[in-house]
């Protein structure tokens, strides 16, 4: 029969979805484990810092509730990111209504770098952070998806509702800004 945990670990997203449809709740847990941290990174790239756990959880709950509408014309991760982005936009609209138009995702927070463990000099990391904060929201979103998730341009285009060509331009413009900032003395 095989080890159940090995069955979920090696299974593709489509296989896990099929297992979940058959009532295997371990498949749901496996999908969460596989995509949760990426969703958190994506949420952070959109400027979210607080309540990210709740945001990720809401994303998965909505996803599983509407899994029948997942057409597999994009990857599951892209579809999850799409749901997450809608939730983030809803949050931002609600916050804007409360705070009367203050933009919350323009690099306000400076986060510590505990997880870097000396792999990157603290000063360099600080400069990367500042450089990314200089990007437009769209440039930052495209750049983050390409660099941290290795997402193909076609999937990025679906997520940001643009074209592959435009996404390539956004990425290269972002890359130029970051290289220039990092090379400045």
């Amino acid at each position: 029969m095989g080890d159940p945990s090995a069955r979920t670990q090696d299974a593709t997203d489509a296989e896990l979805i099929a297992q979940w449809h058959r009532g295997d709740q371990r498949a749901a847990a496996a999908l969460v484990e596989r995509h949760a941290q990426s969703l958190a990174r994506f949420a952070a790239s959109l400027g979210e810092r607080d309540g990210v756990d709740e945001l990720v959880q809401d994303t998965f709950v909505r996803a599983f509730q509407s899994l029948d509408s997942f057409r597999a014309d994009s990857s599951l991760r892209t579809w999850l990111f799409t749901i997450c982005k809608r939730l983030v936009l809803d949050r931002k609209r609600a916050e804007r209504r409360r705070r009367d138009g203050v933009e919350l995702d323009e690099g306000h927070a400076v986060v510590g770098y505990d997880a870097l463990d000396g792999l990157v000099a603290e000063e360099t990391a600080q400069r990367v952070q500042e450089a990314v904060a200089r990007l437009t929201p769209l440039q930052r979103e495209v750049f983050t998806l390409r660099v941290t998730e290795g997402m193909p341009y076609g999937e990025i285009a679906k997520l940001v509702e643009s074209t592959e060509g435009a996404c390539r331009v956004h990425y290269h413009n972002a890359m130029r800004i970051i290289k220039e900032y990092l090379s400045d003395d």
Partner: peptide, 11 residues
């Protein structure tokens, strides 16, 4: 470098 930093800064 950017990849390391962005992944590390994520909550």
């Amino acid at each position: 470098t950017a990849r390391l930093v962005l992944r590390a800064q994520a909550p």
